[in-house]
Nucleic acid binder design. Structure first.
Lengths: 350, 350
DNA sequence: AAAACTTATCGAAGCGCTTTAATAATAGAT
DNA sequence: ATCTATTATTAAAGCGCTTCGATAAGTTTT
């Protein structure tokens, strides 16, 4: 079988030294345009590509990025983190890094089950998506490996983070409703102790304030203990029952709760969007197939992954680069729950 | 910062040569138990781990496995391939391989967009999940890299494959229904040109034959052009309308079509499972949240990934190992669509 | 007791690359 | 023309590991 060419073969054929080829390869040092050209030509002819491990050995770099997920993300229906991964992988290609993907268990103990790439020091940087133990983060820090956190906010830690812009999301939602002439806009907040959920609530409040609309407390549900479908259902029920006048529009802090609202409204025969308009957040698959389909805020997972990766690469190349906290813009997805569509909308499982 | 220890440090401290340490590390050659012990102790003390790239360079192996997916798998709702990946990753850990995950586009052209790990020859073997262009497969073959195919059957190719046992699946379904005293068992086949779908149909036919039940043609739908929800809906409609006597049970070749049946039955007020029992195939998420929840055949994705990985590792280590075609057993998941459950079943989005 | 294995250990070469330091060639300044 | 700075090229060392072949020591066979 034909051995793949090495840098030596290139050098011989181009009639230059190894070093020169290497310099051409890495765009370094002094090489005359003429020889640069010549070498490049030979590289092409031979289909030469430097071997990862050789280069890694010489540079004391692996060329790999570790991507850590908690395993429950895989069991979720929504391919949320999967898309983040995809964005990261895409960006990694540009920088010629490989991603090593690993899952860790939630109840993870760093002294038992460290990801292999950490034990073997086989990564130049780490991406962490979602909530993981701070013990792990501290451990990685102690190894002096740069980290970027995705969709996980650790106030007290000093790492770059990439989060979606929750605040902006609910603002967009409010603006959309106002454009549709709504002035009576309620809100279902869910569990406010969760940072993201809290931000969404603040976005809503602020948007109303900016529009000069005063909050109507009876249209705001803030006492749910979670953000599930059932919480949305119950919140909608409470809200309808307890307030004498009804809002004309309602924003739920996530799609799950919005779907809960939809269920309740369907039961008591409140028409969406005619009687009440409804907006969710997250743009989960079920938001599309809901009846009516749900206007919602789409989170750009792909961009989150990509941005995190490019940030990490910067951290690796420019050592002690300043950390920063990036917010990825969200977008409003208008569907039937706010605007009666004349167009046919796909609502079935394909 | 403290440099991580090399094999040299171990050798020095254990007062042996580099070679000896290497032999201990790889469990090779002649090393007396005494020195083996001694070296092992030092390795532990120093927390030594061989560096990937150095070893890779010396062995001319990357220690990596490439995992190729077509990108549309990522946009699917079902985390089918994600779970396969997880199974593969788990198994990879045991054999000390890393997985490099890459997606390729469906309309992939090997001369433009080859996965990087192929270009760089940075993998020792390849796992392919789902249907990819045979051009790609041929290309990888030409590089002499072992391949194992998952959930993709290429009759004319000579690679090991890992598929789920479709045939067994519909047999289990039939057996389950027979145990429930059903004798009039219909079938909705979908698009029989698809190999898996065809196998399922054969499994059904054979199971009935084995049970001594003769096929009733009017209860079998084989003229649908696809396997979507709408096909299930239409098939159920046709079946009910065209046959004078009704079956007491129905098997659909996948959950999507079963859900289509459910929709139609709900419309015409046929009760499941009282009037007619229903079984799907695949165990997608929606099968669980369907009303009633759907009895179905679960595909063991995790095992598929794991088995594929261990098979691939064998291919790598034992060169020209004989290829084999592995069928991963499926399991019956009993839910409300065949058996009225007294237990509370989770049907809501959590 | 010599010959012939078997077992144990190690030195050295080599894997394919990067990089440093030395040298050579060219250009610019005096 | 001479000296200096700049540009171009390369030999050689080294990254951390495996492995071949040499050597030494211990065992068995004759």
């Amino acid at each position: 079988m034909p051995q793949r060419p090495t840098i030596k073969d290139v050098a011989k054929r181009a009639d230059v030294s190894l070093s020169t080829v290497s310099l051409v390869l890495n765009n370094k040092g002094y090489v005359s345009p003429k020889t640069r050209e010549k070498v490049a030509k030979v590289i092409n002819e031979l289909g030469y590509h430097p071997t990862r491990s050789a280069r890694g050995l010489a540079l004391r770099k692996s060329g790999n990025i570790g991507f850590i997920l908690t395993d429950d993300h895989f069991t979720q229906t929504e391919p949320f983190y999967t898309k983040i991964f995809l964005g990261a992988e895409f960006e990694a290609q540009k920088h010629n890094y490989y991603i090593l993907l690993t899952t860790i268990t939630k109840d993870f103990d760093p002294f038992n089950s460290l990801p292999r790439f950490l034990i073997e020091k086989n990564v130049d940087g780490i991406l962490i998506a979602g909530q993981v133990s701070t013990v792990l983060i501290d451990y990685i820090d102690s190894m002096n490996i740069p980290i970027v956190l995705i969709d996980f906010d650790v106030e007290n830690h000093k790492h770059s983070t990439v989060l979606n812009n929750n605040y902006q999301g609910t603002q967009l939602a409010v603006e959309h409703l106002i454009n549709l002439q709504h002035r009576k806009i309620g809100y279902i907040a869910g569990d406010l102790s969760h940072p993201s959920i809290n931000e969404r609530y603040q976005g809503y409040r602020n948007a109303l304030k900016q529009a000069g609309i005063t909050l109507e407390k009876s249209w705001i549900s803030i006492n749910q203990k979670d953000t599930k479908v059932s919480n949305g259902y119950n919140a909608a029920k409470d809200l309808i029952k307890s307030s004498h006048s009804l809002p004309t529009a309602l924003i739920a802090a996530n799609d799950a709760m919005a779907i809960g609202c939809l269920q309740y409204f369907s039961e008591i025969n409140i028409k969406v969007p005619d009687d009440i308009a409804l907006i969710g957040f997250d743009n989960i698959e079920k938001a599309l197939s809901a009846q009516p389909s749900l206007t919602t805020i789409d989170v750009n997972k792909f961009a989150m992954g990509g941005t995190a990766m490019s940030t990490l690469v910067e951290c690796i190349t420019e050592r002690n680069k300043q950390i920063n906290h990036i917010r990825i813009p969200v977008t409003l997805v208008v569907r039937e729950s706010t605007v009666k569509s004349v167009m046919q909308v796909e609502t079935q499982l394909s």
